[in-house]
């Protein structure tokens, strides 16, 4: 089973959320998701300033064999995007929880965090479908 750091929260659709400060959160896709998708070839990110609702499609991660939508786990405004992914999409494979982050959001509704899974919950979710 791929790893899922315990300090992060996870969406069922395989995004992770890291708390930066009170209302700012960093978002990426899980190790499990990047492994399923395979070698990334292109990442399409939202625009800085873009307003998102939770569950909105906000990015596309594209590998050789699949293109998958990324859904925003939280509502809010995009404040920063990981521009290095433009030239180095492989960072999402190499370091999904670090250099492979996708974007940072200024959240408007902290209660949405409660809907997300813990690392244990996320691992359990994937063990069902993993055989």
């Amino acid at each position: 089973m791929s790893n899922a750091p315990s300090h992060l929260k996870y969406a069922q659709s395989h995004e992770w959320v890291e708390v930066i400060d009170d209302d700012t959160y960093r978002i990426g896709i899980s190790d499990h998701a990047q492994a399923l998708l395979g070698d990334m070839v292109f990442i399409e990110l939202p625009e800085v300033g873009q307003a998102l609702n939770a569950h909105d499609e906000c990015a596309v991660v594209e590998s050789v064999k699949a293109a998958s939508d990324v859904y925003s786990p939280l509502s809010g405004e995009v404040v920063e995007i990981n521009e290095t992914l433009e030239d180095s999409p492989e960072l999402v494979n190499r370091d999904p929880y670090g250099d492979g982050w996708l974007f940072t959001i200024k959240a408007t509704d902290r209660s949405e965090l409660d809907e997300l899974l813990s690392a244990d919950g996320y691992i359990e979710l994937n063990s069902d479908s993993d055989d």
Binding site: F42, E62, S63, V64, A66, A67, D69
Partner: peptide
């Protein structure tokens, strides 16, 4: 760039 195509992206 096959990820654009219908056999992978299906309805998208």
């Amino acid at each position: 760039l096959q990820a654009r195509e219908q056999h992978i992206r299906r309805s998208k």
